[in-house]
Amino acid sequence: MDFSFIVVQLISGLTMATFLFLIASGLTLIFGVGKVFNFAHGSFFMIGAYVGYQFSSVWGQNFWLSLLCGGLFAGLLGMVAEFFFLRRIYGRADEGGFQILLTYSFILILDDLVKLVWGTEYKSLAKPPALSGAISMGGIVVPTYNVAVIAIGLAVVVAAWWLLNNTRGGRIARASALDREMLSVLGVNVPMTMTLVFGIATALAGMTGVLAAPLRSVTPGAGIEVIIDSLIVVVLGGLGNFWGAWLAALLIGEVNSFAIVLVPKWATLFSYLVMALTLIFKPEGLFAPRKVRRV
């Protein structure tokens, strides 16, 4: 294994990690702020991809506009789902179980709606022409699009960190994770905050769906396929922890990337192994915030 190959493999792992993170980030945000586990997060990812396909491939719009519209649509749908349905079960006894049940019903419904609108044929979305090539440097070849994806992932981490720490909205979101009652006493509309956060998270998932579409096929059933991997990332990163999710995604991506080279037959086992080991030795997640902040 020579040096340039190691670098190539590292970058490959990074690409995988970025997608993992982009999907998981919304999941961890919703969990952090509202203690809601959105099992249907992958379905919003799928919806985003289909809407992006509609704009880009059917209506011939610009890729980045399609990306925006895919995200916007998924976000709106997420807000509708939260406002009309999820909100009704907050505070119920055994809320966790009902969250799974309710969001699972979203998966079932959205799957069939997608089928009704777009059928079951595989859909395809072209990359923006500017990013279709590859960057070659000292024997290392990396597709431009992958580089762009990694950059977007980084931008999302930094932007989210900045927004959460330096804006009023971010402070409210963080505060509602700590003490909702107090926040509502202070005159903040907590339910509305939750709807908005849900919207942002699902919009992120939708945008990721469009971003991933040129590298994958847009197919029905994608919602359920991505959810377990994202779940692993969220738990490893420490529930509700943005930076943690990014680092956890990185860990899973790189472990996978090198497992493929070293033990190709058992590579798919590793993400579960990492999760099991982590939870046994550090149950609160690898990158959990300090106890003080979690309260």
């Binding site: 997608f19 595989y122 992958n146 493929i260």
Partner: peptide
């Protein structure tokens, strides 16, 4: 599987003359 990047770079490293593939459907596309 949704992300084949790491597999692709490993295959490139192995430099086979023939790459035999056994995928079906969306996996082939991806």
């Amino acid at each position: 599987e949704s992300d084949y990047t790491s597999y692709i770079t490993s295959i490139m490293q192995a430099k086979p003359d023939i790459l035999v593939s056994g995928f079906w459907g969306g996996d082939t596309v991806a």
